[in-house]
């Protein structure tokens, strides 16, 4: 058996697919001040998992995945509702909703049926990148047979369509997204509905996150939704470039992280998340150095500003 084909190829492919699936919605989330959506989702899925168990009596990934998806969508809807009703910034609304939903999950865990069963998220939902072995291709040329790809590990078969659908959606709605992201009032005038776009983005994020939770675990999803987009944010003001760079950086972070993990013999997800943080730190330093080199033309958003800086409308 070829260890690269069995271990590294599926892990790398899953990592890349997860990177793309998360970086696409993540790039927009970061622009909208919703970077913590991944963390919120990782907590909000708990009641969905427990209800799925209580309803079916099964510890199997099918119903639990559906339960997690449903809970994620409900939570995302509640966040949007609370934001509007209480006029809150996104992270405050997320904190409010995810702590309440997680608490609900903890209460459900103490019911008689769930009490004696190991239903914690690490056991029931969150997967590990490394555990996706692919034993079918014995030699490289096997990969040329289309049928062999149907035997690929399930996380890959799930994440690739999710990434493709998200990419297609983004391309098709790019114009609307751009306007809705930077000028919701104008968008409404133009007949677009920013709320609809908000909802579509949230649903897409939830889908990508839950699919990726099951494949690579929560920590990597939170990192992939945030770090690549943060690096891209430091590089460009153009929306299209920002999204493209997010996807590129996500892939680079995944590849560098995986190889570092292999060399250090540590967890792939944890190492990739740490590499993501490192990438943001490096980007901040490089940007500071470059701005020092040519200070006057720095433009807006270079000072110690704590608010989300809108992209320059003219440049988008």
């Amino acid at each position: 058996m070829n260890p690269f084909l069995a271990i590294d190829l599926p892990a790398l492919l899953i990592a890349i697919a997860a990177s793309i699936a998360c970086a696409l919605p993540g790039s927009l989330l970061v622009l909208r001040g919703q970077a913590l959506m991944g963390d919120a989702l990782s907590h909000m899925v708990l009641p969905g998992i427990v209800v799925a168990f209580l309803a079916t009596g099964k510890i199997s990934s099918g119903p639990m995945l559906l339960g997690a998806l449903a809970a994620g969508l409900i939570g995302a809807g509640l966040i949007a509702l609370v934001r509007r009703a209480a006029k809150l910034e996104p992270s405050a609304a997320m904190g409010l909703v995810f702590t309440i939903m997680f608490a609900l999950g903890v209460v459900l865990l103490e019911t008689e049926a769930a009490r004696k069963v190991d239903l914690d998220l690490n056991h029931a939902l969150y997967g590990h990148l490394e555990a996706a072995l692919w034993l079918e291709p014995a030699i490289w040329s096997d990969l040329l047979t289309p049928a062999i790809w149907l035997t690929a590990p399930r996380p890959l078969l799930m994440l690739v369509p999710v990434a493709l659908v998200l990419g297609l959606l983004l391309v098709l709605t790019f114009k609307e997204l751009r306007i809705a992201s930077f000028d919701p009032d104008y968008a409404t005038l133009q007949g677009f509905r920013p709320r609809l776009i908000d909802f579509a983005l949230t649903a897409a994020t939830t889908l990508a996150a839950v699919a990726a939770f099951e494949a690579v675990g929560s920590i990597l999803v939170i990192a992939l939704l945030t770090c690549p987009a943060a690096v891209a944010r430091l590089c460009t003001d153009r929306l299209a470039t920002h999204i493209t760079l997010s996807v590129v950086f996500a892939t680079v972070i995944a590849l560098v992280g995986y190889n570092s993990a292999a060399a250090l013999e540590t967890s792939g997800s944890g190492t990739m998340a740490a590499v993501g943080g490192l990438a943001v730190g490096l980007a901040v330093i490089v940007r500071r150095l470059r701005l020092h080199a040519r200070p006057p033309a720095a433009g807006p958003g270079t000072g110690p500003d704590s608010a989300v800086q809108p992209l320059r409308p003219g440049s988008v």
């Binding site: 590294d8 892990a11 590990h128 555990a131 013999e265």
Partner: peptide
């Protein structure tokens, strides 16, 4: 946390 080294041992 499963690691790549563990996968090689399993394989």
């Amino acid at each position: 946390q499963p690691t790549r080294a563990d996968m090689k041992r399993l394989l």
